[in-house]
Each structure stands twice: as C-alpha cells, then as structure tokens.
Design a protein around this nucleic acid. Structure first.
Length: 421
RNA sequence: GCGGGGAUCGCCUAGCCUGGUAGGGCGUAGGAUUGCUAAUCCUAUGUCCGCAAGGACACGGGGGUUCAAAUCCCCCUCCCCGCGCCA
C-alpha cells in the first residue's frame, strides 16, 4: 500500500511508476474514490458531531427530569440519515480499498526502466565458469542415473513439478539448510520457523490480491493459505505492532517449505527440480528503520553473495528493471547462479526492499521514544537458499567425469566428511 | 471436543452488574523546584480528517437491540485454568 497522501499530492509520481512497470491500472478511479472517501469522512464526521451533541443534551435533560420526546424524535432522524450515509461511504470504501491494495509499489531512482528482463543490468560477476573435459549432463540426468530424484513416481502421486528426493541428496539438502542457518546465525540473524499456513488477512499483507491466483494454494474450507515463502509469515508476525526503534534492525533467518502454484509458468523449466511446487527456503527477512533500509538492502545482498562464494558457485548479480520487478518491491537484485547443464545463469536469489509497502498493509510501525510520532518500518527480504535450485546448481557444476557429484567444501563436514556422492 | 475465566491507549489497570464525554498508574518527553543526581509537582503522550481552530473514531473482530453500547444480546478469533482425546 502506498501513502494515500500521494494520490492527492503527487499523482504524477504514481503515473510514472505505472508506466515504468508497464502495469495496467485505473489510477483515475483510485484518485476519485480517494477524493470521495475524504468527502464522506468530512460529511459523516459532521453528522456524528451533531449526534454526539444531541446525545449529551438528552442525557442532561433526562437527569433534570425534562421532556425529551421532541429531541428524541429529532435524534432518531439524524441517526437514520447517518446510517444511510455510512452505507454509501462503505460502498465507496470497498472500491477504494480494492484499488489501493492492488496498486504496485513506487520504484527507486536507481532502477533501470524497461518492460522486461531485457532491461536488467548486470552489477557484477563472481567465479570461473567450470569447464569439463567430458560431455556435460544436466541435473535431471545426473540425479536419475544416481537414483537421487524420482520425478516419475512424484508425477504419479502428486502431479507435475513434484519430486522425491532420495538417499544422499536428502542429506545434502539437510546439510545445505543446516549450513545456511549456521551461516546466518553467525551474522546475527535469529532463526525462525514460521507457520506454513496463514490466514487471508496476513497473506494479504505480503502479497497483492491479484497474485494469489497464480501463486498461492488455499486450504479448502479454512481461512488458511499455504505460504509461498517464509517472508509472508514473518512479515505478518509483527502485524499491528509498534516496534521499539532501538531494537531495529530485526534480522530473521526464516526456514520453511514453500508452496507455489506456478500457474503462469506453463512450458517453462518443465523438467527437473528447477521450477517446482514445493521446496525449502532459507530467507533473510529484515524489519528496518525507514532511514536505514537502503543500507540494509545492500548488506543483505552481500550476505547472499558471500554464501554463494563459500559454496564455490559462480554467479552474477542482476539489478532488475522496472518491468521485471515484483509489485511489492521498490528495488530488487537477483543473484543468478551458473547452471552448467543449461550453460546459463539462472535465478537463485531475489533481494528486495519493499520500503513501507508491506508495513502499511500490516500496520507495523516503530518509534524510538514512546511520545514520538510512529513511522512505518521498512521490510526487506532476500533468499539465501532455495533448496531445489541450489541442489540443481550443485549437481550440474560439481559433476565429475564418472557421473558423480563433488560436495562443496563447506558442506563436507555436514556430510560426515564425505567428498562425493 | 466439553466446562469455567479473560482480551480496554507502548506496558499495567478501573469502568461492564445498574447503557449517557474511557479514568488512573508505569514508561517516555517537556517544564517547575533543587550544588549534581534522585524524589516531588505541572503539562503532554492511540488513530484519522484538517494549515489551524476544531472534530470524529478507538475498549479482540463482526453483526444486532437502542435516540444512544466498553457496558445488553448473538456469532467468530485468540489467551488462561480444569477435563477429554491425541503424534
């Protein structure tokens, strides 16, 4: 949610943002419903004032033992007029809030303007692309020949884009998770394992309603939704609260499975475990003071970069263009890891500053002293590990001539000093 | 799942029976007083609209009764105690 003041004071900024994102949005309807909303507030408040005054009069007359029949009749009509006006107000409020909750976030000045990923900018690269003196296999061939993933039976049991992980790959997955949590703990993040299902109100704090259909699984007959990432549950964790500014930044290392419909992804990454309905993710999530969030954003990116360096996975950092960013983000970096089997860099990390967009929806504020004005906190999130993608990347980049997988050095101690699968 | 008790401003709490402007304490800020500090006293301290004056809203959420609801009625959520069931 944007600051409603902007609808009145700076519609041009919003118009520019919509054009930059190439998003179709009826801004005029939003502005006019916002205008009406303000008018309704003025009118109904005036009537309530009158009603309150009369109520007091009635109270006093009754105490004095006077006749109240006339003023009671008057009060009755004021109350019913007010009820009618309030109903109209509610209709407008419905229109307004639907629009206000779907308008995307503002865009930071440093974001390249463009309609799609073609306008993304490469920020930097790390690592040598591995060269092989044998035919390069993709992660599907490697894992199937080693019996580490069973896609066919997963399709039978759950459908496309599911998988059974098996044997040492299960252990490698757990090792990655454990290493990731240790890594973030050392950097001062508090590990959090959130609820994997959350209610609609909480989900709407982190996700725009339009995106529900494409991404989020709903639990039948319950007000519960499967989280698409721990970001959703961690953002909502502080909803309605006023945080002590002295405690900020609050840095969390979220760990949870992630459930995604991938409804718009027909045909893309159809095979393997690169794009799946379920995976585990370790997420950096930060509640920041509004003054520090840009610093915090760069910091989070560096943390994720360091992690991929430690794993010895070649990667590049991409600054996403206005058209390629998510709607809640004001600026997003992706880290793309090298995938030898695909001979390309592929997204494994998304690191975003959402400013006060989520915190306005969730009413998460902060202040340093109790008599200070409250301000909305800024929320930021960045992937550390999305397990299925990082597993695919390790399998492809660390494949050996005889079809095995070398284990990255930092994970070996977690694998009982095993060096190869 | 059953029975009982709860949810009020950042924190704690009064008011609910008997409907009529939500009061107090802590914390915090400013001021007064005072060698300094502490203590004491005064003022401010939820959200929204407004340049302001001012006003409205706010008692877990949603309905209802009423001229008027923190207060009465109904539904829901969560927390606590006891019982039941259970990995």
């Amino acid at each position: 949610m944007l600051d409603p003041k902007l609808f009145k004071t700076s519609p041009q900024i919003i118009r520019d943002m919509l054009r930059s994102r190439a998003v179709d949005f009826d801004l005029d309807a939003l502005i006019s419903s916002d205008q009406k909303r303000r008018e309704f507030i003025l009118k109904t408040e005036e009537m309530r004032k009158k009603r309150n005054q009369m109520a007091q009069e009635i109270s006093q007359k009754k105490k004095a033992g006077g006749d109240t029949s006339q003023i009671l009749a008057e009060m009755k009509s004021v109350s019913s007029d007010l009820a009618r006006l309030e109903a109209e107000q509610q209709d407008n409020e419905g229109i307004y809030s639907k629009l206000a909750l779907t308008i995307p976030n503002l865009i930071h000045d440093s974001v390249p303007i463009g309609t799609d990923e073609g306008a993304n900018q490469e920020t930097r690269r790390w690592g040598e692309i591995p060269s092989f003196d044998h035919a390069i296999k993709n992660h599907i061939d490697i894992s199937e020949s080693l019996g580490l993933i069973d896609l066919q039976r997963a399709a039978k049991v759950a459908g496309a884009r599911f998988y059974y992980l098996k044997d040492k790959l299960v252990m490698l997955n757990q090792s990655l998770i454990r290493y990731g949590l240790d890594f973030l703990s050392e950097k001062g993040y508090r590990p959090v394992q959130p609820p994997y299902m959350i209610n609609r109100e909480s989900m709407e704090g982190a996700v725009i309603a339009d995106d529900f259909e494409e991404v989020i699984y709903k639990v039948q007959d319950e007000d519960l939704y499967m989280i698409g990432t721990s970001e959703h549950a961690i953002a909502a964790m502080m909803s309605g609260e006023i945080l002590d500014g002295m405690d900020l930044p609050l840095r969390y290392a979220g760990i949870s499975p992630c459930f995604r419909k991938e409804a718009g992804a027909h045909g893309r990454d159809q095979k393997g475990i690169f794009r799946v309905h379920q995976f585990e993710k370790i997420e950096q999530f930060v509640f920041s003071s509004p003054d520090e969030s840009w610093k915090e954003h760069e910091r989070m990116l560096r943390v994720s970069e360091e992690f991929y360096q430690n794993l010895e996975i070649p990667h590049r950092v991409m600054l996403l263009s206005s058209g390629d960013m998510g709607k809640v983000s004001a600026k997003t970096y992706d880290i793309e890891a090298w995938m030898a089997g695909q001979n390309s860099y592929r997204e494994v990390v998304s690191c975003s500053n959402c400013l006060d967009y989520q915190s306005r929806r969730l009413k998460i504020r902060c202040r340093e002293k109790t008599n200070e004005e409250t301000r909305y906190v800024h929320t930021l999130n960045s992937t550390l590990i999305a397990t299925s993608r990082i597993l695919a990347s390790i399998m492809e980049n660390f494949q050996t001539k005889d079809g095995h997988i070398r284990i990255p050095g930092v994970l070996q101690s977690y694998m009982g000093d095993q060096k190869e699968i």
